[in-house]
Computed example of a mutant assay.
Amino acid sequence: MPGRDFELRMGCAGDHVTIELSDARAERRPLPTPEPDEGGYGLLLVATLATTWGVKPRQVGKTVWATVPLASAVPQ
């Protein structure tokens, strides 16, 4: 089925992990929302846990990325 292929990349730099998830569906760009909608809680979790996140276009599709602090870097 078109749009079902995806790629997950993770990298660690200093005290953060960067997570990137790419797929072929450029028309389905996530948008920030203050409350969960029919899509669930995914972006609320990302916005809560990540120091920054965003969406960037690709030649085919999009990449949603987030930078998350490592547990040792989170203030207690």
Rank of each mutant, 00 (worst) to 15 (best):
P75F: 01
K56V: 15
K56F: 09
L44K: 06
V68D: 02
G61N: 03
R58C: 11
S72M: 14
P30T: 08
H16W: 07
M1A: 11
E38D: 12
P32G: 06
V60H: 13
Q59Y: 11
R28P: 08
P34V: 09
G40K: 00
V64L: 01
V55S: 00
P36F: 01
W65A: 04
W53R: 01
L70D: 08
V46I: 15
T52L: 07
G54S: 03
E38L: 09
V74E: 04
R28C: 14
Y41S: 14
L45M: 14
G39N: 10
A47Y: 05
G54N: 00
P30V: 04
T18M: 08
A73I: 00
I19K: 00
S72F: 15
D15N: 06
R4H: 15
L31I: 12
C12K: 15
D23K: 02
A26G: 04
L8Y: 13
E20N: 04
R28N: 15
I19W: 05
A50D: 01
L8D: 00
L8H: 10
E20C: 11
D15Q: 11
T48Q: 12
A24W: 07
W65P: 05
L49V: 11
L8Q: 05
A50E: 05
F6M: 12
D37A: 06
M1D: 14
A71C: 05
R4M: 13
F6R: 06
A73M: 01
S72E: 08
F6H: 03
R25D: 10
Y41L: 13
H16Y: 10
A47D: 11
G39H: 15
Q59E: 15
L8E: 01
Q59P: 14
E27W: 08
R25H: 01
K56D: 07
P36N: 03
K56M: 12
T67F: 07
A71H: 06
R29H: 07
G42P: 03
Y41V: 13
R58V: 05
V17Q: 04
L44Y: 06
D5G: 04
T63C: 07
V68T: 14
R9C: 02
E35P: 01
G42W: 09
T33E: 13
V74N: 00
W53M: 10
G39R: 12
V46L: 13
P69D: 00
A50W: 02
T52G: 05
L21G: 10
L43K: 13
K56L: 10
D23P: 02
T18H: 01
T48I: 14
Q76T: 15
T33D: 06
L70W: 00
G39Q: 08
R25S: 10
W65M: 02
L8W: 06
L44R: 14
T33G: 13
R28V: 14
D37C: 05
M1K: 06
Q59V: 12
V60I: 07
G39M: 10
A24F: 08
P2F: 06
